[in-house]
Design a protein around this nucleic acid. Structure first.
Length: 400
DNA sequence: AATCCACAGGAAGTGCTGGGCG
DNA sequence: CGCCCAGCACTTCCTGTGGATT
């Protein structure tokens, strides 16, 4: 066991591995974005008219996670605002975090300095405040709606309808929209008018190949690490793992960061390929554990039911089977159960979160149901559930 | 070809929290 | 103060359905 002194000392005496750790964090936008020249130029051409005072076309950006959509957008906007001084207004809203009409509008209005409480107002009131604030500024505004599919799936396209037509209500100002999504089929859910308006221009981001990921990592590594601290296989390993995950650059960078963190924690002088593999396991586990921890109680109880059934060796878990087990658990705890309808939704939520795998099948005479399988590791499920079960005094359910 | 199971999953509504606004 | 708002977890009521079995 190392002493506290030793732990703090390592940070005081500056890292042996990191030169600048921040350059690997997900929200850092580097000075150059390798292999995205085409997209950068196209986006810049679309947005450039803003500098001349005319409204740029709306843009729709597609691409899987970690293909550089957000980075390219932020990069181009940053360069544009450097050139345009305060001619152009910008707003960036992440619709995964702000996944309701109200919250998106509140973010946009706030970016213009309007005062909007985080709850309490009618959405139409927030619309009004946004319009008023924008009109007062008398500028062109470019609003980025990142992960816009989350918004539409939850709250419909009313906000988008409003935003795409907002220019009719403005005389001194203009609004352009950039919609970013990683769901390629998502436009199907859109109102035709919204779809055509938002899709005035389209931009596609293909996944990075392993080679391209290596280039990116090398460039970042140069900024982030001291020379010679990476074993030669480290970058190719990160790139290869991430390339398998749809060429997800965010994952590649995260792997590199975590691997280096692990190496540093160990007091190693170099990052080795083994650290990358450890990092991979840690990332996978952390994601599920965090997701489970933050879930409402009954979602956890349903997960306990699934977990127990799976451990009992039950095959072909169906909704009904799980519901019965869940009822048993709530009875044991003396709690009121939720309805089967709700449990059906909970199973879908668990599926969306990647913790279980649920698919609807028809068993003919034996009805139509969902077949559920656990897809996360049992260990991380145990870890995610532990605290709550401890509070309920039933830890023994999950630990043997 | 008709039947019928075991649910899926849509629509609308409730009760609660945490906040407006005048 | 009273009334209104959004969001969330959840309920109630409901119609729909793929395909093995009759």
């Amino acid at each position: 066991m190392e002493s506290l002194d030793e732990i703090f000392e390592r940070y005081l005496s500056r890292s042996r591995i990191f030169k600048n750790r921040e350059k690997l964090l997900p929200d850092y936008v580097p000075r150059e974005l390798p292999h995205r020249d085409e997209q950068i130029i196209k986006l810049a051409k679309i947005l450039a008219p803003a500098l001349a005072g005319s409204r740029p076309s709306n843009v729709f950006i597609y691409g899987l996670t970690g293909t550089g959509k957000t980075a390219v957008t932020k990069y181009v906007l940053r360069r544009l605002s450097e050139k345009g001084q305060d001619k152009v207004l910008f707003a960036y809203v992440n619709c995964r975090q702000n996944n309701t009409s109200y919250r998106v509008m509140a973010e946009l209005a706030r970016s213009l300095g309007a005062r909007v409480p985080f709850t309490g107002l009618a959405t139409s009131e927030v619309f009004k405040r946004f319009v008023r604030a924008l009109e007062k500024r008398g500028r062109i505004m470019v609003a980025v709606l990142d992960e816009i599919d989350h918004l539409v799936k939850r709250s419909g396209d009313d906000v988008l309808y409003f935003l795409t037509r907002i220019n009719e209500q403005l005389s001194r100002s203009r609004l352009s929209l950039i919609g970013i999504t990683n769901d390629l089929k998502f436009t199907e859910f859109l109102d035709a008018r919204v779809k055509s308006s938002l899709g005035e221009e389209e931009l596609v981001f293909p996944p990075y190949t392993a080679r391209e990921l290596e280039d990116i990592l090398r460039q970042r590594a140069e900024e982030a690490f001291h020379e010679g601290v990476l074993a030669p296989e480290v970058i190719p390993t990160c790139a290869a793992i991430a390339a398998k995950q749809n060429g997800d650059c965010r994952l590649a960078l995260d792997l590199l960061l975590k691997a280096a963190d692990i190496a540093e924690r160990e007091g190693a002088s170099r990052v080795e390929a083994e650290h990358v593999r450890q990092a991979q396991r840690e990332i996978e586990k952390n994601v599920t554990v965090d997701v489970i921890r933050s879930m409402p109680l009954h979602v956890k109880l349903v997960l306990v039911a699934i977990y127990l059934l799976e451990r009992e060796g039950a095959k072909n878990l169906t909704t009904g089977l799980i519901y019965n087990k869940y009822l048993e658990i709530t009875r044991m705890l003396g709690m009121d159960p939720v309805t089967q309808r709700r449990v059906s939704d909970i199973i879908n939520e668990l599926d969306m979160a990647g913790i279980v795998n649920a698919r609807v099948v028809s068993l003919g005479r034996y009805g139509r149901t969902k077949i559920i399988k656990i897809s996360a590791s049992l260990k991380s499920i145990e870890e995610g559930l532990q605290e709550d079960l401890f509070m309920l005094g039933v830890t023994e359910l999950v630990t043997r």
